[in-house]
Amino acid sequence: MTDRQPSDARIVVRTLSDLARIAGVSAGTASRALAGNSLVNAETRSRIVALAREHGFRPNQMASGLRRQRTGVIGIAIPLGHDQRQQISDAFFMTLLGHLADALTERGYDLMLRRVIPDHDEDWLDRFIGSGMVDGVLVIGQSDQFDRIEDAADGYRPMVVWGNHREGQRHCVVGSDNRLGGRLAAERLIAGGARHIYFLGDVNAVEFDARFAGASDVAQRLGIGITALPSHLSPDRLEAEVAANLDRSFEPGDAIFAATDTLAVASIARLRAMGVDCPGLVRVVGFDDLPLAAHTTPALTTVRQDIRAGAFAMVDLLIRRLAGEDTESIVMPPHLIVRRSA
């Protein structure tokens, strides 16, 4: 009987992640190595290229340098790593997508939309930008995928992201100053008498975490309590989670800062069902200033980010990057919109 020894030769390499795994590097490093990116040292590049050749892996990832003609299509990806059951029908997504579609149409582009669950496809971004089907990519939200987006930005120029900007980041982003927005919300609530703020949102999402951090800056400076209550936007659990989070005896001075207008509206509805007066006993501030914000009862006080201006800025930056320009990120100032809920 012949002993069988394990061999790399029997490993099937179908994806960039498979190749990265046997090379002992990240998918981003593997993609940069195959693209000849000098950020990966020459020895590692040679080893990864040799492994790809040995296993018959022929990548079309990082295809900006391999494509020979334009498609006239821009890809839009919505990664949902932090909230996998959230739907594209979410009010924020639909508002931003509408403005992006308008801006792309004006520039003569069609769009291709992908809703991405990163746990099911860890190469989602490399695969999309290397598909040969799109000229460039717009990413809506960083979710919990900040590092993956950073990796892709090292080897792929025509990509712009809606999200939060961090000092020193490599990917080009358009978005609001979320931390400042959080401060504006907390200051409004505290000026109205808040002594404890409940933050509804999932801080695993980069933008929501920045909003919570901004509110916490103000609360801690002024000696006000603040509590994060994890709340998701997926339709099958939004109402139940809001109800569970608000299942408490509210006291004068309690207030709610919701990470989105959708969560704020759900909170107001739950307070009403509990017989809790808003804004009489509990004041509520949202974030986004979606069209629905002005039509709630009471009308929603919220932090406005200029979604239309941001969408058109994303498309403008992408077109410039397709032309070979280096572009800076754009951080838009948020504005407090005062209505009746706080």
Rank of each mutant, 00 (worst) to 15 (best):
R53I: 09
R53A: 15
E54Y: 06
H55C: 02
G56D: 03
G56N: 04
R58L: 03
R58Q: 11
M62W: 02
M62G: 10
A63L: 01
S64R: 06
S64N: 02
G65K: 08
G65A: 10
G65C: 00
L66S: 11
R68F: 01
R68L: 06
G72A: 06
V73G: 04
I74W: 05
I74E: 07
I76N: 11
I76Q: 08
A77I: 05
A77F: 04
I78V: 15
P79C: 08
L80Q: 13
L80I: 04
G81D: 05
G81F: 03
H82Q: 09
Q84G: 02
Q87E: 14
Q87H: 05
S89Q: 11
D90N: 12
D90G: 00
A91N: 03
L97I: 13
G98K: 03
G98Q: 08
G98L: 01
H99R: 06
H99G: 00
L100Y: 03
A101Q: 15
D102P: 00
D102K: 10
L104M: 13
T105G: 13
T105R: 13
E106T: 13
G108Q: 08
G108V: 04
Y109I: 07
D110K: 12
D110E: 14
D110T: 12
L111V: 12
L111T: 14
L113K: 04
V116Y: 07
P118M: 03
D119E: 14
D119P: 00
H120M: 10
H120I: 01
W124P: 02
L125T: 10
D126L: 06
F128W: 11
G130M: 02
G130V: 02
G130W: 01
G130D: 01
G132C: 01
D135F: 01
G136T: 09
V139W: 09
I140Y: 02
G141M: 05
Q142H: 13
S143H: 03
D144W: 04
Q145K: 10
Q145D: 14
D147Y: 07
I149Q: 13
E150N: 07
E150F: 01
D151T: 09
D151N: 12
A153I: 08
G155L: 10
R157I: 05
W162F: 15
N164W: 09
N164V: 11
H165V: 14
R166V: 07
R166Y: 13
G168N: 08
R170C: 05
C172V: 15
V173I: 12
G175H: 04
S176D: 03
R179W: 01
L180P: 00
L180Q: 14
L180R: 14
G181C: 08
